[in-house]
Amino acid sequence: MNSKLNELIGIGPMSPPITGPGIKNRAIKTGLENNGYNITWIDTLGDRKRSVYQVIKSDKDSNFIVSVSTNGRFLLSPILVSKMITGSSRAILLPAGGEFKEELANLPYPTNKIYRYIFNKYDGIFPESEIEAKELKSFFNQAIKITSLPNPRSRPNTCNIEVGNSTLDLVYVGRVKETKGLDYLIDGFECARQTTPSISLDIYGHFLPNDEYELRFRRKCNQAEAVEYKGKIPDGEVMKTLREYDLLVFPTYYDGEGFPGVIVEAFMTGTPVLASNWNYNMEIVDHGYNGRLFEPQNSYEIAKNIKWFNQNPGKLEQMKKNAWKCSKRYSTDTVVEDLINILIDIGWELDTS
């Protein structure tokens, strides 16, 4: 299957404003352009009708990189398949989040069958996780290339590795909602602080609109010593903020948790991660090497691990070095090089004119 690539088009949210998929898509677009490839991007953030119209009006001989979340892939894929059937368009799917397999499995019959047919028309499906890639292979025919493509970030050239001598400074960065495990984090932190007073916890993130959890969370923060909610980090300053801390804590038990970009960003600042053993966290956090894993929704486990880090500064320093070292696999340069090789392997002729 060799076809001349008349135009390469990306589809998906594009930061700014800052969103997980938007950051990923910005990295992919910039990386392809830096390698000399021409790509047009249809931004699905904001006016959805406008982006759908742009997809419909795009040339039927274009090739598409579809990097969207749930609603986008189910809405846009039938349109793209019609272009594959009536023209010479081709497409690959980069499903954001970690629920694609479950979404397909939970569709009622015959909708499930229809969408399996639609997604089988893609040249390839490239989730962020190796675990999810293995799971998806059972859903599609063998003609589709399925392999993982990590969530990329722009990696700094250098990283200053050091461990403070006095306070162990912990940080959470992410959405503020109940299933992100923040209640368990604060309870575990307070438990650890009873015997380890030289620790602090700062929490950054935003709330979902009209979320009843906001009031309870703010009250819990106000009642806890050495815990401070610091609001949303300004766009583009996540890594700058993470450099101020010794350890990122990520206690999620959110069903839709995919490949958390903030863990990658932590590694790129030489910051180890204490994460719940949930969904694909185990694939990124190598227990004992670049961080530690704990049982989800378990404050005692969080407290025990916080105390371990505080009592083992030498091992914390080594984990910082390891985190920086392993971050290279998630750099934009590495991931985009893998993507280019994938496109060449499936027969796409990339336009550099």
Rank of each mutant, 00 (worst) to 15 (best):
N290P: 00
V249H: 11
E265T: 01
N277K: 06
Y280L: 11
L247P: 05
G258V: 00
F294S: 06
D246C: 03
P260D: 05
E283L: 01
T241V: 12
G256D: 10
N305G: 02
K230W: 13
A266Y: 05
N310P: 13
G236N: 02
F294H: 06
E257C: 00
E237W: 12
Y289S: 14
E244G: 10
G258L: 01
D246Y: 11
I284K: 08
V227A: 09
S276D: 14
V264G: 14
Y280W: 14
A275M: 06
Y300G: 14
Y253V: 01
A275W: 04
F309G: 04
G256I: 00
K304D: 05
L274C: 10
I263E: 12
A226D: 15
F294M: 04
K230Y: 11
N298D: 10
Y289D: 14
V264N: 12
P272G: 03
F250I: 06
E295N: 13
V249W: 06
H287C: 09
E228W: 12
Q297C: 11
F267K: 01
L274S: 08
E228M: 14
S299H: 10
V273I: 05
N310G: 12
M239A: 11
G261R: 02
A266S: 10
V262C: 00
F267Q: 02
Q311D: 13
I284V: 07
P251Y: 07
V264R: 06
G231V: 01
K307W: 14
E283W: 03
I233M: 08
I284Y: 11
Y254A: 08
K307Q: 15
N279Y: 15
G270A: 06
E295I: 13
N310Y: 13
F250Q: 06
I233S: 08
A226P: 03
D255N: 12
A275D: 00
N281C: 12
P296E: 02
W308P: 08
Y245V: 05
T252M: 11
E257Y: 01
Y253L: 03
M282E: 15
M268C: 13
V285G: 01
E265H: 04
D286K: 14
S276Q: 09
L242K: 00
H287F: 12
T252Y: 08
N305T: 08
V227R: 09
M282N: 13
L242Y: 05
Y280I: 13
Y280A: 15
F250D: 03
Q311I: 11
N277E: 15
I263L: 13
Y289C: 15
D246H: 09
P296M: 04
E283V: 02
E301M: 10
L274A: 07
Y253G: 09
S299F: 07
S276I: 04
V238Y: 08
F250C: 05
A303P: 00
A303W: 07
F250H: 09
P260K: 02
F294Y: 04
W278H: 10
E301W: 09
V238T: 13
E237M: 13
K232D: 15
M239Y: 10
I306R: 01
A266N: 02
A303N: 07
R243T: 12
K304S: 07
N298C: 07
N290T: 11
A275S: 05
N305F: 05
L293V: 00
R292N: 14
W308G: 00
E295R: 07
W308K: 03
H287S: 10
P251A: 07
E301P: 11
T252S: 15
